[in-house]
């Protein structure tokens, strides 16, 4: 990369969440990602920026989308990428998260991308290991690269965040995507609304500095961006909503409800979608309003930017030096 890029971009040597990032760091990551959007659209998508570096994808929860996005990002930057899907069987053998991670750490990776079902798992690994840790989703806590890719998508379409009204709809309670997006959007000057039944909103959610709505049409009124969340059926340990059909009737996004939003409002979804539960296919597939495919494209660029930014700390601090 150009010498200008060799400047350290992030204060931390890990990316564990959006909450700890500054506005400047977020903007710098988005700027850097723009260069990778261009690279990814060219014929030769590869650089040798991370040549010789090893990246391990450690996924304790299955995820096709995020894992392949990180894998592509690492490979396009020239790193050696190892995908580790940690099945529940190795957990059943009694190996703890720390055991698994320290074993991998002994193989001297430079970067570890981790997804885990427990909040704080990435933070725990960052404390115990001596490589860069990227949080690819920890429990209901944060999913920083998702929020960054959403931000990149929004910025490319709307030019900025100041004054935008963003409505985040659905299962906020269990959603790490929602938490990361709330932090990011508020930092960048957007207004955030949460729309959900009371059972899917955390207690004291209003103390985040967001507006709370329990009615889709009221919450969507005048919104520039509509972010739908996946109804995380696999996380439901109790009955949070009585049925999916009732949920779709009142909180699923269809063209009728979308009319309440600002004309030309963008519809986003972190995927994978539950069609007919939180979003109607007619909206999801409407290329006039849906930017869901674009989010996936931005995902690779953002992850390249994150790996690039963190690798600068590696080179400078001599982390992982033998």
């Amino acid at each position: 990369m150009t010498p200008a890029h060799a400047e350290p971009l992030l204060k931390s040597s890990h990316l564990l969440g959006i909450e700890a990032l500054s506005v400047g760091e977020i903007a710098a990551l988005l700027d850097l990602a723009e260069t990778y959007v261009a690279l990814n659209r060219s014929a030769s998508k590869k650089t040798d920026l991370l040549k010789g570096r090893t990246l391990i994808n450690l996924f304790f929860e299955a995820s096709t989308r995020t894992q392949s996005s990180f894998e592509l990002a690492g490979k396009r930057l020239g790193a050696d990428v190892l995908n580790m899907a940690v099945t529940s069987s190795s957990v059943a053998k009694g190996e703890t998260l720390i055991d698994t991670a320290t074993t991998l750490n002994a193989m001297r990776p430079d970067m570890l991308v981790v997804r885990h079902a427990d909040s704080g798992a990435a933070e725990l690994l960052a404390r115990k290991l001596d490589c860069c840790v990227v949080n690819a989703g920890d429990g209901s806590h944060e999913h920083p690269t998702q929020a960054l890719l959403d931000a990149l998508t929004i910025r490319r379409r709307r030019g900025g965040f100041e004054g935008l009204i963003v409505a985040i709809c659905g299962d906020v309670l269990h959603s790490r995507v929602a938490r990361s997006n709330i932090h990011l959007l508020l930092k960048m000057g957007a207004r955030v609304r949460l729309i959900a039944p009371r059972t899917l909103l955390p207690a004291d959610a209003d103390r985040f500095g967001v507006e709370i709505f329990h009615d889709m049409k009221k919450g969507l009124a005048g919104a520039d961006i509509v972010m739908m969340l996946r109804l995380q059926l696999e996380r439901m340990s109790g009955a949070f909503v009585p049925s999916t059909r009732e949920y779709f009737r009142f909180f699923g996004l269809d063209h009728e409800k979308l009319k309440a939003a600002k004309p030309g409002a963008l519809v986003m979804h972190p995927g994978p979608m539950n069609r007919g539960v939180e979003i109607d296919s007619a909206v999801a597939d409407d290329i006039e309003v849906s930017v869901i495919q674009e989010q996936v494209e931005m995902g690779v660029a953002i992850r390249m930017a994150v790996l690039d930014a963190l690798s600068r700390g590696l080179a400078q601090g001599g982390r992982n030096a033998p």
């Binding site: 704080g120 790490r176 938490r179 955390p202 207690a203 004291d204 340990s237």
Partner: peptide, 20 residues
């Protein structure tokens, strides 16, 4: 059941299972 911390703003920030 299953809760690790007290429900509230801080529990929400940490994304931890919480009880009132």
């Amino acid at each position: 059941e299953g809760a690790a911390v007290t429900e509230g703003e801080y529990a929400m920030r940490l994304g931890l299972p919480a009880a009132p």
